[in-house]
Amino acid sequence: MGQTPRPTPRPPSESDTERRRRRAQFLRELNEAKELRARVHPRRARAARMRQQMRMRTFRW
């Protein structure tokens, strides 16, 4: 019922550099998707930026 998903263990053949390369690729694609979304919905993107700025202003370090 409330079982938490466990991270899948990495196959032993996968090297650290391969994992980093895949992660970098994923982050690039994520950034690209965010930029595309911002171009398609500028008002929504602006509102999201404002909300993020507000969160950062009220966040206590």
Rank of each mutant, 00 (worst) to 15 (best):
P12Y: 02
A24K: 02
P42M: 15
A33H: 14
P12N: 08
R20D: 13
A48G: 02
P7S: 07
L30Y: 14
A24W: 03
S15Y: 01
A38G: 15
R39K: 08
T17Q: 03
R43G: 13
F26E: 05
R44S: 15
A47N: 12
P9W: 01
R19H: 06
E14M: 13
Q53E: 09
P42Q: 15
R57L: 06
R49A: 07
E35Q: 15
A45P: 01
A45T: 09
R10I: 06
R23T: 12
Q53I: 11
R51H: 05
L30P: 03
R44F: 10
A48K: 00
R55P: 00
N31W: 14
M54L: 03
F59G: 09
D16F: 00
Q52Y: 01
M56K: 01
R19S: 10
A48Y: 00
F59R: 13
R39T: 03
M54H: 08
Q52G: 06
R28N: 11
M56G: 02
P5M: 04
P7N: 11
G2W: 03
A33M: 12
D16Y: 02
E29H: 10
A45S: 12
R51N: 02
S15L: 01
L27Y: 05
R23N: 09
A24V: 04
R44P: 07
W61Q: 12
M1Q: 06
R46W: 11
T8M: 10
R6W: 14
R20V: 09
M50Q: 11
F59M: 09
P9T: 01
P11Q: 08
D16K: 02
R49M: 08
P12D: 06
R19L: 11
S13E: 04
E18D: 12
R49N: 11
E32W: 10
N31A: 09
F59T: 09
R44H: 15
A24T: 04
M1N: 06
Q52P: 01
E18T: 13
M1A: 04
L30W: 09
R22A: 07
R60Q: 06
S15A: 02
V40M: 13
S13P: 00
E14H: 02
A38M: 15
Q3N: 11
L27R: 06
W61A: 12
P42V: 15
E35P: 07
P12C: 07
T4A: 10
L27G: 08
R55Q: 00
F59P: 03
N31L: 11
P11H: 09
A38W: 13
L36Q: 13
P12W: 03
P11C: 05
T58L: 10
M56P: 01
K34G: 14
R20Y: 12
N31Q: 11
R60I: 04
R49S: 05
A47S: 14
T17G: 04
T8H: 12
T17W: 02
A48C: 03
R21S: 09
T4P: 00
P42W: 13
T58M: 11
R51E: 03
V40N: 12
R46Y: 12
P5L: 07
M54C: 04
R46A: 13
R22W: 08
P42L: 15
L30E: 08
